[in-house]
Write a protein that binds this DNA or RNA. Structure first.
Lengths: 336, 336
DNA sequence: TGCAGCTATCGAATCGTTTCGATGGTGCGA
DNA sequence: TCGCACCATCGAAACGATTCGATAGCTGCA
């Protein structure tokens, strides 16, 4: 690869002049600039961002850490971040934590060693808040995406409690009193918030929380599917179930299918963050949908805001609205 | 941030000694090494991969370009690549092409400027083969993932024609003669290959291809949904439809739903690369599923192989097997 | 005692840029 | 004609590491 030195030699100027031509950092004489441009064209010179970054102490790159890109919601967020980043001339460094603290830690180390200008992270279940704080205090802006943390930093996510509360209230309005919650890992902030919405609704309706109705665990393992099946063996089985995520929703539906049960006939059902193309299939699942792409876009914008103006000091939290689409599975379409 | 110089000064040694301690590049006296280690601990020194990469002329990073991470198949591939990369100590730089040549080109420029050690790409529909070849000839190993190209390089993907042929033959076996194909953009190699499988099956069964039955276009736009609806207005509408991708499948099902038609009652249906959690919903769609995660893993392994042994010269193509899951939508469960 | 052969460490060049103070030449006003 | 300002360009020092030839000190053998 041709370097700036080759170009300078060929054009008969110094490297600094070439640099100024390339970056427009200082005015350069017309005729000289032409010679430089010609030299660049004929050598096929391309700036080396590594050397550039080393010298300028900024890399024009941002890191993103999510638990798993393959989960549709995260995939959409990543797409949003990537789009916004690319538009602003930033490159995206992606790492998965696999919801594992050690892997997350490694990922953070790798990204900071690469000196990313900013970091977007959906902290893993048992993420180390202190580690992030160290990074932030060392001068790298951090944005929490989708999930919160004890860390005080910019944050963007969706409203979790209110729509969950609305969904459960909706079920209560339609006569359900025994409502179960397939929660998942409460160490994940979104899950905890969604459970809170469930509690809020029950409290408002003065229904006592039945702890046997609140299931934790991912919904993916055989264990938690057994938990769901056990629900139906209770003397007073729930008449409705809500799930906090696509994964737990799938767990519930699978476990129910094992027993030959389907919503809405056998139980009412609704979930936070459902399945793609849900309208094409039966039953249509009542779903709280989050604007995942926008979450990603906003996360990147929060970073760009810091880049643009280092004096921004107070951290900003953005909560986007989640929509509820009432469909067949909660058994109340046409019934109201 | 502390630099190697700080550490050296504190430990009372030269920077080269510190470097050798850190990297284990040369033996260092026991007592000296201890001092260096202590200095590293007390300064909180961390290697700067930027400077390191500049000097060593390798970045321990790889770039990946797909059309859209949010598509489930690509998301899984990216996950596979990331996993394998992280395990081998590589960082992943991600870019989306949006199936657009210009954006792809920009992405490639950004990645090569960052001197990635290798490049994994699913070339966009009208990707410039020459551009990739230039990169490859400049010394950066390139792996084609999921899609082929005129470029001669390592490649990993799934078998496209054979399973599509099998699927269509299956429909023919069950009495269908009027079979339509929702193809999509033929400039995408996978789509073209899948269409070929469709042709192969028809030829084998000596059924003449009816060009009115072969639809191109993404399936997402209103136009192509109109195309699908038009199919059913033909004097001789197809009795079966196969789709080449999740997107076109969704397009077909939506358009059919507009007319109140559903498989398998109104037409037999099957698709390459379907919907997640397909077994939970009705109708269950007959689907050719690809091992997307493994494709990603393999792609990264092909790169690692080149890194490990620069003498590898012949390019390798890996075609993984795709499975066909026959389900309700093709209307032959129990019927055979 | 002198020298070969180690081992442990140092020093300096290098990777490819950016950046900023210095320099040389030109034009203009006094 | 002198001096000043100004413009275009140059030169050299960073950025933070790696790498390799050189050197110093030591052991052991002749």
């Amino acid at each position: 690869m041709a370097t700036i030195v080759d170009v300078a030699r060929l054009a008969g100027v110094s490297t600094s002049t070439v640099s100024h031509v390339v970056n427009g950092t200082r005015p350069v004489g017309d005729e000289t600039a032409q010679r430089v441009l010609a030299a660049i064209a004929s050598t096929g010179y391309r700036q080396d961002s590594l050397a550039r970054a080393l010298r300028r102490a900024r890399t024009d790159s941002v890191g993103i850490v999510v638990s798993n890109v393959a989960q549709p919601a995260f995939a959409e967020m990543v797409r949003g971040v990537e789009r916004e980043a690319a538009e602003a001339g930033f490159t995206l460094l992606l790492a998965n934590s696999g919801e594992d603290r050690a892997r997350e830690s490694k990922a953070l180390a790798a990204l900071t060693a690469r000196r990313v200008d900013g970091l977007i992270i959906a902290p893993a279940a048992h993420s180390s808040w202190r580690e992030l704080d160290k990074i932030r205090r060392a001068g790298t802006p951090v944005v929490l995406m989708d999930r919160t943390s004890r860390l005080s930093a910019d944050m963007v996510g969706v409203e979790n409690s209110p729509p969950m509360r609305d969904l459960v209230l909706h079920l209560i309005d339609h006569g359900h009193r025994r409502i179960a919650l397939a929660a998942g890992d409460l160490a994940v902030s979104t899950i905890a918030e969604r459970r809170q919405g469930y509690f809020d609704a029950l409290n408002e309706a003065e229904i006592k929380v039945n702890s046997a109705y609140v299931l934790t665990g991912s919904g993916l393992s055989e264990d938690s599917r057994a938990d769901v099946r056990a629900l139906f063996d209770l003397r007073q089985p729930p008449t409705a179930i809500v799930a906090t995520s696509t994964e737990t929703a799938a767990g519930v539906l699978e476990a129910a299918a094992d027993l030959g049960l389907t919503p809405p006939a056998d139980f009412a059902f609704g979930t936070f963050d459902g399945f793609a193309h849900a309208d094409l299939f039966r039953p249509r699942i009542t779903t709280i949908t989050q604007p995942a792409y926008d979450i990603g876009v906003t996360a990147m914008q929060l970073l760009l805001r810091r880049f643009g103006d280092a004096s921004v000091t107070r951290s900003k939290t953005v909560r986007l609205k989640a929509d509820i689409a009432y469909r067949d599975s909660c058994g109340c379409i046409g019934a109201s």
